[in-house]
Design a protein around this nucleic acid. Structure first.
Length: 448
RNA sequence: CGGGGCGUAGCGCAGCCUGGUAGCGCAUCUGGUUUGGGACCAGAGGGUCGCAAGUUCGAAUCUUGCCGCCCCGACCA
């Protein structure tokens, strides 16, 4: 993409409303624009990152055996009356009416709808288990939206729903999502820590929040350092095999958010040097809730003996748009974002220091074409801006690699390559620079 | 929802207390000089002062109501 054709409204000054780094940088780097309290438009640069996060989430869901679909954002009140949540949900639910004065709502989640869809198509225990998901915009009329996309009212969420014949089978579904989440967050460059979450009135131990450690996190968290060092399950893990050992590994050490924290237990069970007290961002939440919806909504299947059995359900959410904020919180410095390659809006920023100069233009065009041919995504700064401004904005938007072409270097046949993550700058022969950078990018994408 | 604050040019702000020509920096446009870390000179354009009502000869400024946004707390991906 040529910057001259792009829409990239950068802000030189720090927006007064933005309190945390990710919000500030998303506004400054022209990735989002606020359209209302907790409501954001996704500008081209931010949209690309959002789509990449979404795609990684999708790939890991598919790998775990979940099946993608898409449910609408608008739902009817009728459905929610069946589960009893229409009245219970309160003011967080945005309620609207259509022209016939029918009560509708903008979905804050989809348990009711997926249950309705499930019961319409499944009759027998032989058709179980089922694992369905979608990635769709949600609206929750939060009392206090804040921190940009970290707590928006409208947000993009991946929500999966599991349907099983009994609790043992449901646990396997739960474990699949548990492993899928560990892999998803790792691929996004994040260290996530599963923490036992409050299961509410249902009880049991089948609810975990996935927390990313970050100074600006909304909740205080406590965990055992050994958890942080555990290895992410490999991509060839057998999702239909016994996942329990992996889950046990990740749940055997102390980890709790402040509402579940037991200070005495923490000190008793965790050596002092392994105690981590930090702040975290909740990026995922998995939950088993049994027949909470299937019984009132009559989502039943015929069992082996012909009797009706309410299905055992679970739901599994990932805050896709929130993840973007979490990634920036983890990867930035004073100058801007430092995108990990897999989610970077473009892999390479090609900086033409003297647009209009024949030699510079020609060298840039050649590199641009060579990189694109290899599948490397390039944002080519072909504008007439001054060098200082070009450097500053490349650092701000934080593409992993910058290739700098200027008259000074060209005289010696050299290009400069800067790695945004570590700030290391190297020179390379102009003829080799595209191959060298392409290799680095493609290697970083291998992880998947 | 309770507490605090803000709304003036695209962005960041001053002016308001003490009513009287709407201002500054950045950005934008034109011309010129520049060009390896957010340039310089000269000129120009751009404003329903959040909305409405009231007080007044006169309101960005005072009063009332409404709307929007931000921050702190209880809830959430």
């Amino acid at each position: 993409m040529r910057l001259s054709r792009y829409y990239l409204p950068l802000l030189k000054e720090t927006p007064a409303d933005a309190q945390i780094a990710s919000h500030r940088l998303m506004l400054r780097a022209g990735m989002i624009r606020q359209e209302g309290a907790g409501i954001y438009a996704w500008l081209p640069l931010g949209f690309r990152v959002l789509k990449k996060i979404e795609q990684i989430v999708r790939e890991e869901q598919n790998r775990a055996g979940a099946v993608e679909m898409l449910m609408p954002t608008i739902q009817s009140a009728e459905l929610w009356r069946e589960s009893g949540r229409y009245d219970a949900y309160g003011k967080e639910m945005l309620r609207i009416r259509d022209r016939a004065d029918r009560e509708m709502l903008f979905g804050p989640t989809n348990e009711e709808m997926i249950t309705e869809i499930f019961r319409a198509g499944i009759r027998s225990y032989k058709d179980l288990p089922k694992l369905l998901y979608h990635i769709q915009w949600k609206f929750r009329d939060e009392i206090r939206p804040r921190f940009g996309v970290m707590r928006g009212r409208e947000f993009l969420m991946k929500d999966t729903y599991s349907f099983d014949i009994d609790e043992a089978s449901a646990r396997q579904s739960y474990n699949k999502m548990f492993v899928a989440y560990l892999r998803t967050f790792a691929r996004l460059g994040l260290k996530s820590i599963p923490m036992r979450a409050d299961t509410g009135p249902i009880g049991g131990d089948l609810s975990h929040e996935f927390i990313v450690l970050a100074e600006t996190g909304e909740s205080a968290v406590f965990c055992d350092r050994r958890l942080v060092d555990l290895e992410t399950p490999a991509k060839d893990i057998d999702f239909d095999g016994d996942l329990q050992p992996v889950i046990d590994q990740f749940t055997s050490h102390y980890a709790a958010t402040d509402e579940m924290h037991d200070a005495a237990g923490f000190e008793e069970n965790v050596d002092e040097q392994n105690r981590v007290s930090a702040r975290g961002i909740e990026v995922g939440h998995i939950f088993f809730f049994g027949d909470k919806y299937s019984t009132p909504m009559k989502a039943v299947v015929a069992g082996p003996d012909g009797g009706e059995i309410p299905v055992q359900m679970g739901s599994y959410g990932v805050g896709v748009s929130r993840l973007m904020g979490a990634i920036i919180e983890a990867y930035h410095d004073d100058d801007g974002c430092k995108w990990p390659v897999p989610v970077a809006p473009y892999h390479v920023g090609l900086v033409n220091l003297r647009a209009g100069d024949e030699a510079c233009d020609a060298a840039c065009e050649k590199i641009y074409a060579a990189l694109e041919a290899k599948g490397v995504e390039v944002l080519y700064d072909d504008t007439g801006a001054r060098p200082g401004e070009k450097f500053a904005r490349m650092d701000l938007i934080g593409l992993p690699y910058q290739i700098v072409i200027g008259p000074r270097g060209l005289e010696k046949g050299e290009a400069e390559v800067k790695s945004r993550v570590d700030g290391v700058r190297e020179t390379a022969p102009v003829g080799e620079v595209s191959a060298r950078v392409a290799n680095a990018v493609l290697e970083a994408l291998q992880y998947a």
